[in-house]
Design a protein around this nucleic acid. Sequence first.
DNA 1: GAGTTACGCTACGACCTGTAGCGAAAGCTC
DNA 2: GAGCTTTCGCTACAGGTCGTAGCGTAACTC
Lengths: 232, 232
Amino acid sequence: MISLTIMRRADDGPYLLTGMVAVMSTPATPAHPRPGRPRSAAADAAILDATRDALVELGWSKLTMGDVAQRAGVAKTTLYRRWAHKNELVVDAVAVLFDELQLPDRGSLLEDVQGVVLQFAALLERPETKTALMAVVAESTRDAALRERIRSAIVDRQKRLVLLGRERAQARGELPYEESPVQAARNADLIFDVIAGAVVHRALVSAEPVDETWARNFTALLVGGLGGVTPA
Amino acid sequence: MISLTIMRRADDGPYLLTGMVAVMSTPATPAHPRPGRPRSAAADAAILDATRDALVELGWSKLTMGDVAQRAGVAKTTLYRRWAHKNELVVDAVAVLFDELQLPDRGSLLEDVQGVVLQFAALLERPETKTALMAVVAESTRDAALRERIRSAIVDRQKRLVLLGRERAQARGELPYEESPVQAARNADLIFDVIAGAVVHRALVSAEPVDETWARNFTALLVGGLGGVTPA
DNA sequence: GAGTTACGCTACGACCTGTAGCGAAAGCTC
DNA sequence: GAGCTTTCGCTACAGGTCGTAGCGTAACTC
């Protein structure tokens, strides 16, 4: 029902079903218009909407391509022209949700981290993401192309928050500047895996709520380890 | 090929397919022997072996019940008499692998944690666990019974390591004793989610190696946050 | 218009799921 | 041993999903 504005050409299309990501130099928006009838952007949006709806109602395992097509008011073949497999479709459908993640400046590293933890937890509470995220990650262990798609569509969107948060903390003097770029990257990756990993594990594996109390305790642990200022 | 010694009656059997866990008071080993032909323990073992083999070769998504039955030299119906669904079968098949996890006393909290991190990482490197773990967790988001099965078969086996490690660290004087049991449980859960979560996330989502360097950095971060002694 | 591509529709083969029904096998108790 | 009970392997099956092919039509460019 919500009309999306995205137009990100999600397709590897019918052209390179081989799976190589490469892309056929479609720079951004216009490219040079290929001949023939263009793909319906409305169909794209309808399919992704339908996928999210289906995820909520059916969950990952019972979601079928035929069902999504029907919900979207689209022929099944149209769906297959864009996404070769269910998992790729779902990655794209869920990816947008990660754009919600923001990192408003709350004044301290401690509060910034706590804020993002709770936000991320809220995102994982949604049935679409809860049921889909682990499933596609599981698939990706045997599919390099899917792994790359997840990285660019989901992981990188989260990682930028870590980079931003560190930058602010360094400006505040809460964290030291790294000596080498290598070390800087390593630290950021580590922190990212700790935060995202802990939240996901708590929410999905331990299946316990990520509430304020937990977020506070976790944040204290992390920031303490970072050697950051921990105000009483 | 490996003859297993387990005999853990994994079945909710054909009796309570409704899914309620409850169990029908089969205390431990002997119970009182029901009349009729007993279930073949050899078949149990063969099926679980075959499941692990199939996971290695095919991965989660392409593993089928029929295929497992064939590999195990067992009729498909025999398989369904024990496990109602693929995910339950896989949980049981993979669970044994988590028994490998040990926590030898390495002398310090820092080294204990680092050791278990590397062990856990090695376990996640195996294709059986890599492809299966996230998949069953994903399924469990919509299946309370499966969630419980995962908890008792996998999660609890890991969590005991945390409890043991903390106990040792407290005995060494590296960690303070918790004031209340509630706080103690909360801390253990937190630490568990941080360790397991970070390792899983690094290995499966970020898809980067959990090597010695990473383990050292992570451990330093965690132990530092715990307020433990961090020798230069 | 000519050319090209996307669309909806129908149909299809291949595969997987989970169950039913059968005769035979393997235990138990008397 | 006889009788009872449950499991086993086998075959067959209905129901559902996957992914593709072929067709006529729609949309867009030159």
